[in-house]
Design a protein around this nucleic acid. Structure first.
Lengths: 191, 191
DNA sequence: GAACGGATCTTGTCGGCGGCAAGATAGGTC
DNA sequence: GACCTATCTTGCCGCCGACAAGATCCGTTC
């Protein structure tokens, strides 16, 4: 820590990236309510006002985290759909994203944490939504696309939320992917 | 406001209840992140340290909100099950509870907001869980009770969460109950 | 190669918040 | 009427987010 204070050059190099990564780490470890710009700056070794330059304010930082999250999610869903062509796999990829990126996931759907009109967020969000509804219309022609889409989204989103918040009983085991498959097939597969 | 300061007696009478109600109102209006004990005290007209006496700290207050929420939820679910005997109606009652008590619902499932070992919360929670899993075993003997239970819970919980956070498209209309029925039947009813 | 201008970061300050401690007041009990 | 406990107040501390003003660095232009 003394080293960081002593050697550090006036310009960090990529402070924005460093702040985002550190923020994600802190949120994943202790939750977004604990996050503080000053603590973040302290961890990285810059002054307490440095973060404001890159993100405006705290909401700006969290908006950037959300935008990055929606972008990562869209990429993951697109990959799952293109690779398997199976809508079930898209749902499982949604859960996998949430488990692998809990900090992003939590911030994304906590709209009180960032500005509603954040353009960066909205663009990334539209990308993710397209993968959510597109395949349904293609795969299940004539279906109640909106109803089925929201049901599927609700199921995987609810499962991911409950899993991450530790609300699910231990009965499902520790393997999130297997548990998700067991649960999600209750909707997608008729028996 | 002047009046409140002038006339107020030293003892409030039911400060604990007043604080809880005001907290719920503030959370419903502006979200839990904005909530402040000092602002709460100011609204009610007591000193800034008065809330601490009843709840210990901020987490204690939010724990009380969560406990009250789980209790209200358990009551609502029990009533729905006993009245209709239909598990679909229990799911819809879950969504209805979330829409009718958004502040309670939000706090309940944000475990970072209150102490994990809050006994009051745990007791109320066990009550709610019993209504969630009990009927499945009774109504669908031989089924994958845990799998179906978590699927149903995930579906209604996900729908409620997405609905409350404003993530669902306008396509579903403004009537939460009708929308929920349209979505939830995708899981419960085979076509 | 020197001056300029914008981007990046620092220092200093302000009000508000949560938490703690010590004291004042009220209501109940013997 | 004395005591005792629950309730509430006042005063303080450190931390936080936001803002303003200034320092430092880098690329560009002439």
């Amino acid at each position: 820590m003394d080293r960081a204070v002593a050697d550090r050059p006036y310009h960090h190099g990529d402070l924005r990236r460093a702040l985002l990564d550190e923020a994600v780490a802190v949120i994943a470890a202790e939750g977004p309510s604990v996050l503080s710009l000053r603590d973040l700056a302290r961890r990285i070794g810059v002054s307490h006002a440095a973060p404001a330059h890159h993100f405006g304010d705290k909401r700006g930082l969290l908006g950037a985290v959300a935008a990055e999250g929606f972008d990562l999610l869209a990429t993951a869903l697109e990959a799952a759909y293109e690779h398997r062509g199976d809508f079930l796999e898209v749902g499982l990829a949604y859960v996998r994203f949430a488990v692998d990126h809990p900090a992003h996931f939590e911030v994304m759907f906590r709209r009180d944490l960032y500005a509603a009109d954040d353009e960066e967020v909205q663009a990334a969000e539209r990308r993710a939504e397209a993968v959510l509804y597109g395949p349904i219309a293609a795969l299940v022609p004539g279906a109640d696309v909106v109803g089925v889409g929201v049901a599927a989204w609700s199921l995987v989103h609810g499962f991911a939320t409950l899993w991450l918040s530790g609300n699910l009983p231990g009965l499902l085991g520790a393997d999130a992917d297997a548990a998700a498959r067991r649960v999600v097939t209750k909707l997608f597969v008729k028996d």
